Each structure stands twice: as C-alpha cells, then as structure tokens.
Amino acid sequence: MATVLALTGSPSAGSRTARLVHHVGARLADHGHRVVTLHARELPAEALLAADTGNPAIARAVELVAAADGLVIGTPVYKAAYSGLLKTLLDLLPQHALRGKTVLPLATGGSAAHMLAVDYALRPVLASMGAPHITHGWFVLDRHIGTGPDGATVLEPETEVLLAPVVDAFAAALSGRAEPALSGRPEPALAAGR
C-alpha cells in the first residue's frame, strides 16, 4: 500500500478541481492505497506567500509531500497555466521534493483550449522537482464535473470511462507494476472529456 497525497491547487471553496481530485482519491483508496488530502487554499496565506516553512501549517504541508509515495496534483487552468496558488506552494518546497515519487497531474478548465496546460505548463515544473515518474496526466472540462443528489462527485459518463485507465495506471505505478497500456492516446476532444 502506498501513501498518496491528493493536492488541490484551486483557490475556490466550491472547487470542481477538488471534487475531481477527491473522486480520483476514492478510486485509489479502492486500489488499497492510503490517500491524504491537502488543499492549498486552506494554508495560511501570509505564511504561504512568505514561504514561511517555520509556520506549523506550512511545515505540515512540506512534511505531507515528503512522506508521500505519490501525489495526485489537481489544478484549475487559468490563463493557459496551472493556478498561482499551486505555483506558490510548489515554490516553497525543496528543489527536489518530488524525487522518488510518482505523480499524476490533473487539470480542469472551461475550454478544451486549455487541455495542453497539463503537458506544457505543469509537467515541466514537476519534472524539475525531481519526479522520476509522471504518469499520463488528464484534463477535464468543468462542466463534466457535477454533484449527485447525495453530494458525491459525478463525472460525465464518457469522462469517467476515459479517466479510469489513467487512474488505474497511476495506481499500478504506485504498486511498482508496469503501467497498464492505455488504449492509445485519446484524440484531444476525448482527452478533454468535454
């Protein structure tokens, strides 16, 4: 069993990104992994902006990253890049904070035009932090993330079908097994899960 840190980089309290990350976390828990959640928006703003690693909440966030075997990092896409909140948190971590960790990058946004942010904005930063294995990332349109009558996250059916093998491949990588083959890289419209 691996410990996974589910990190959300959305500043919004009603974040669809957070709902997506929780949904993925539940699937990873079904695989037998221990999932711990960290919402960057809940960290004290002044300490976060000052990179005050002496602040107990910031120090705890750094410890959670260090203790994790893998991370699911979710961000909304703003202006063709990941959130400034996520960038602020990543900036205060040690340079090689992701060394030895498996990472699954996820992004949400309002338009398929932002889907490349996972590969062209977020992935290079994660690689620069030492992540040796960044699994196939995924982008989901905001409108395909909803809430059911019981309050549970509900994904648009096609999005659910396309996301499942991505999460399963990450779970397999955490378990030290070879990644299950995805059925080829989806076409952009399908990858967006829109």
Score class of each variant (00 low, 15 high):
L5S: 12
L7P: 04
S12F: 06
A18L: 02
G25A: 05
G25C: 06
L28V: 00
D30R: 15
H33Q: 07
R34H: 13
V36K: 11
T37N: 10
L38D: 08
R41D: 07
A45P: 10
A47D: 11
A47S: 14
G54D: 14
P56D: 01
I58L: 14
V65G: 08
D69K: 00
L71Y: 10
L71M: 12
G74I: 14
Y78H: 15
Y78W: 08
A80L: 15
T88I: 00
L90M: 13
L92E: 01
P94Y: 07
G100N: 12
A113P: 06
H114K: 03
H114W: 03
M115F: 09
L116F: 05
V118K: 02
P124L: 06
G130A: 07
H133N: 14
H136Y: 13
V140E: 01
I145C: 07
G146S: 08
G151S: 13
E160S: 12
V161N: 04
L162I: 12
A164N: 10
P165K: 05
V166L: 02
D168G: 02
A172C: 07
L174I: 08
G176L: 08
R177Q: 14
P180K: 01
G184H: 09
R185I: 11
E187T: 01
P188C: 04
A189Q: 10
A189L: 12
R194E: 05
